[in-house]
Amino acid sequence: MQERDTAQDVLSLGTSHFREANERIRDQLERVDRLTLEEVFAQRYLGCALPQGKHLAIHGTPGNDMAAYLDGGTIEVFGSAQDQIGNTMNDGEVIIHGRCGDAAGYAMRGGCIFIRDDCGWRAGINMKEYQDKQPIIVIGGDAGSFLGEYMAGGTILLLGNPGDHLATGMHGGVIYLREPPSTHALSSGITIAPLAEEDRVRIEQLLGRYRACFAGEVRANIPADAEEFLKLVPASSRPYASLYAN
């Protein structure tokens, strides 16, 4: 059912406290499926555990831990986001029309995050996967250091430059890069592997989705296919098994 776009479906948060703001949002979402938040100033936990079928549009700057435990809902931010978006999110989609702060997708275990521009440090830290739970982060700009730190599963696609200490402690999942990392940025537990056909298909799907999310907003040089990409994977199933053994 297409929801009507009336004034009732718009909440202005201003500088109200996050507890009050989240209560109002939850109340409203009992009645409607699509809700627009305006004048958002750093309220934490927005869209926390938002379920399937619910859609939140955020104007302003949402606070830390936005989309924590997201459970199938969709959150679109028309601006930039702060730290720890998608903390332990389970399912659903987060779209950021701007940049985001540190530790995006912290311990994420399902769903997708699309970031139009740069992200802070430690995006994808502790990401994990299990069977059909395959989390994805797509970053259109540059990433801060420690991208994919302790990554145990899922997919990160980065269009800009990776920072230092790339994939430190990564032992599962895959990172697709367009720009080659500097030699010192990679630890010995990580290898650059050739793209397989299934990687190309996946990259092209994600690029298509990225372009669709940010149509008309992004730089012209978004690649159309997977040709330029590299793939980072852990060197073995237990790359750090002997780290403390000798």
Partner: peptide, 17 residues
Amino acid sequence: EQAAIEVVCPEAASIRS
């Protein structure tokens, strides 16, 4: 936090970390 800058200077450009 970024919003703590925007709340006093909404027109601030180039907010970065």
